[in-house]
Amino acid sequence: MTSDHAVDIDRHVRVYISVFVALMVLTVITVAISRLHLSVPLAVTVALVVAIVKGSLVACYFMHLISEKKLIYAVLAVTAAFFVVLLALPVVTHSNGYWIPE
């Protein structure tokens, strides 16, 4: 193991600790916001934004997605495309089917 490598890992570890703290804080924040009893659309938006930030932190740093190979990005891009289609499923089901609201 070269010392370069070891320094690299030390830097990694410092990042992990900061991400850990951020995740803890964000968890507390999202619980605190839910106490405010915001209107449903707003509450959903806020909770989703916080969850996406937390999820991205985990994916980018713990799962090293921030510095991954192109191939992995390609696989995930394809997955993301189909994931979006999947989430459109409720829209498809509930759509009344008219372009213009009656």
Partner: peptide, 17 residues
């Protein structure tokens, strides 16, 4: 991945869908 509902035209889906 985006053609599946052509199996379901009879389920009363709207015209836009």
């Amino acid at each position: 991945f985006i053609v599946w509902a052509h199996h379901m035209f009879m389920t009363g889906m709207g015209t836009a869908m």
